[in-house]
Design a protein around this nucleic acid. Structure first.
Lengths: 105, 105
DNA sequence: CTAATGGGCAAGTAATTACTTGCATGTCAA
DNA sequence: TTGACATGCAAGTAATTACTTGCCCATTAG
């Protein structure tokens, strides 16, 4: 879980995830293209994302294809982030209850 | 947004958020009590959380009371995390969570 | 008042992080 | 086979991070 948060904490890595979201199955070279850092830097970021299980890879010949794996992000949300939304949702529910006159939910 | 992710990337800070979630309005001393680091370390973590707008503070005399602010977390989810989710993965993540148990720190 | 309490500031350190350069390896095409 | 291409590996560096120690200021209790 720590790996996921740390992976997400870097803007370069989020940018890479964005690029993969726009088009999956990209190679390292394609992902690094146009970015203001070396191919190796991108490779290291991708390795981190892979270690966090946010990105899955498939080797095809001499190329390495990268795919998004949304599961860890979803787990991070479900296990950890969601509970901090509860107060807000409670307030919402309370409001809704007041407005609708319900007494169960 | 970067501040939020970076703030969440540290287990000590997540622990502090957990403590605040359990009981809001705690002082620095109360939050630091029982933790394996100095009061100053905790203070610095809280300053970071405050800078990320995840924690709001109120000064009362010589005490500083800390409160959770779930809004940035909610925004991070809504603007950035949500797009990586797929409806079908809800069940998957929940199942996996049940099978693996809680192991977040 | 004095002293204890709650907290802040600043400098220093060890570990980590992000990134680079240089070279090696495997693959494909001619 | 030769050479170009995609990627991997390793070492080095500069910046950041997490944490500490030591001292200072403000508030409150005795």
């Amino acid at each position: 879980m720590d790996k996921v948060f740390k992976a997400l904490a870097d803007p370069s890595r989020r940018q890479l995830l964005d690029r993969l979201f726009a088009e999956q199955g990209q190679t390292l070279g394609a992902l690094a293209d146009g970015l203001a850092m070396t191919r190796q830097a991108v490779s290291q970021h991708l390795a981190l994302l892979e270690a966090a299980n946010l990105v899955a890879t498939v080797k095809r010949g001499r190329e390495k294809l990268h795919y998004l794996n949304p599961v860890p992000i979803h787990e991070a949300h479900a296990r950890w982030i969601a509970k901090f939304e509860r107060p807000r949702l409670d307030a919402l529910a309370a409001l809704k209850q007041r407005l609708e006159g319900e007494d169960d939910g």
